[in-house]
Design a protein around this nucleic acid. Structure first.
Lengths: 296, 296
DNA sequence: TAAAAATACTCCATAGGTATTTTAT
DNA sequence: ATAAAATACCTATGGAGTATTTTTA
């Protein structure tokens, strides 16, 4: 006999539920039907996949089979998604990864318009730092990433969405705010607050200011932009915020002030990236256009 | 209806043959049977995959579907291979990549013993430079690579097979051969022949000799170790050969001589590498042992 | 001794085969 | 005109259901 997709679906369900009955229920079939298919699969492979007992657990061979089965089912979903887009644009599932310093400020505004324009689009969102996004994109566990462009993302196509300048955030009355114009060099000597290590934003901030880490970087580290703003508010120092985030994070009654830098402004470039040659690149460009439009 | 593996097999066969009848033949079914399954697949996906005519060609959606189908069928083969190894070690297919400067000198000797010990093993061999091997390993199009260890191969496990020292190859009577002992520094000033750019062996050779490219490297480049030896024979210069290759490439009547370097010898370290956590790592270690043993 | 999985048996959906017609070049 | 694919129709395999027994913790 041959291995069937159905058998693989049953196997994955069984791996998830550890119980033939519940797995069957999850697959909308009866327990004997599922049992028979699993038995059939074991027979074709010539090895036991399931350790029968009070709980149904996987044998080592079962673990291996389930891993492959998941890949196969995932690829099958992608087959449906990809062929579907030739029917109507932006139909089906797109797994989008985005930076935690971007997603919450860009996507919520854009979603209503997107749902309206492309009702058959299903966006699966995952937030992760830039390195993880790039890796997930290459490994195929993400279809599309919303991230900082111009870094090494591997073999990708990029689509610019916006330039996001860094603004100075300081408590009202801070000496840096008084100047007629603000240059990046003016920051020297002022304690600069950063995010926790590992955030891609830090090197961007430091590089944007042509500063190297160390002397002026403060020892306090924040775990999100929200707490970073809080730290500035408590007088621990100043920081740079992407304009995109600044609008949302800095409340007008917080006693904090934002200031633009004189040109050339420090900035980051945000956009979409996908694997070079991806079948759905047209879809991805459409999505990029929609995102860009939602910012106007 | 649901997409079935059989439909995907038929689709791939059709993509390969561009002809329903021959595709059917290739799948050991009749033409109407294959036609029906393709029609069924198109119906479930809701889109035409095939452009019917004198030749059966793929529509854009068909291209996409075939690409995914190939992935799925490949994963299915891997499922069989991987679960099979829990039955008997080293059963099934292993896709092995190897350096062109290693494969022909190591594998032919080892194959007979391997076939004897593991008759159910099917080795698929692919020769490629180190960078390609590393990429193919990570992308999953190879299971195992035989390459120079100690370079950046990504998230892999490594298994040492042998240290392969570089020997000096020079025409008999060459001044470098007269010395009592030969040090790497002695090469300075002698034209050193290298392989074509892109070969991983060049930087290894240059680094091994603590020489940087340029002054002493000759302008002539060889495309294989065989022609490299020929170039030395025609008096264009000297070169370094891995000992593994030297035995096979340098004929005793060629008028060429090999000389060992004094310790510390320049050398390369050869071994197997596979993706970290690969299910068949036990198999790969067994294969490594067998290769090592075949060298004794 | 219960809960869980396997077995026994029936039914029907469907893949595949043969024979034939339709379609494209 | 002719090769190639679709259609019509039949057969049989096998997957799913119900009812029941067997297993095991």
């Amino acid at each position: 006999m041959e291995v069937t997709i159905r058998q693989l679906e049953y196997l994955v369900a069984l791996a998830e539920t550890e119980n033939f009955g519940r797995a069957a229920e999850q697959c909308f079939v009866t327990q004997p039907a599922l049992s028979a298919q699993i038995a059939q699969l074991e027979k074709t492979l010539g090895i036991d996949l399931i350790e029968r007992g009070r709980k149904a657990t996987l044998t080592p061979a079962g673990e291996a089979a389930v891993a492959r089965a998941r890949d196969i089912l995932e690829d099958l979903r992608r087959l449906r998604d990809e062929t579907g887009t030739f029917l109507s644009p932006l139909a089906g599932r797109i797994r989008l990864g985005a930076l935690p310093t971007v997603a919450p400020y860009l996507l919520p505004q854009a979603m209503p318009a997107l749902r309206q324009a492309y009702p058959r689009l299903q966006l699966e969102l995952r937030e992760a730092p830039a390195r993880e996004l790039a890796a997930a994109l290459q490994s195929g566990s993400l279809d599309l990433v919303l991230t900082v462009l111009g870094e090494d993302l591997g073999a990708v196509e990029e689509w610019r969405i916006l330039e996001d300048p860094f603004l100075l955030l300081a408590p009202a009355g801070h000496p840096l705010l008084g100047r007629r114009s603000l240059a990046q060099a003016d920051l020297v000597g002022h304690p600069l607050l950063l995010l926790e290590d590992g955030h891609g934003l830090n090197p961007q901030v430091l590089e944007a200011c042509a500063l190297r880490a160390g002397p002026t970087a403060s020892d306090f580290r924040a775990s999100s932009l929200g707490t970073l703003v809080g730290m500035v508010a408590s007088g621990l120092g100043v920081t740079l915020l992407p304009e995109l985030a600044a609008e949302a994070e800095v409340r007008s009654d917080s006693g904090l002030k934002l200031a633009r830098f004189e040109t050339p402004e420090p900035k980051r470039e945000l956009g979409l990236a996908w694997r070079r040659g991806a079948i759905r690149s047209r879809d991805f460009r459409l999505l990029g256009q929609a995102l860009k439009k939602s910012l106007e």
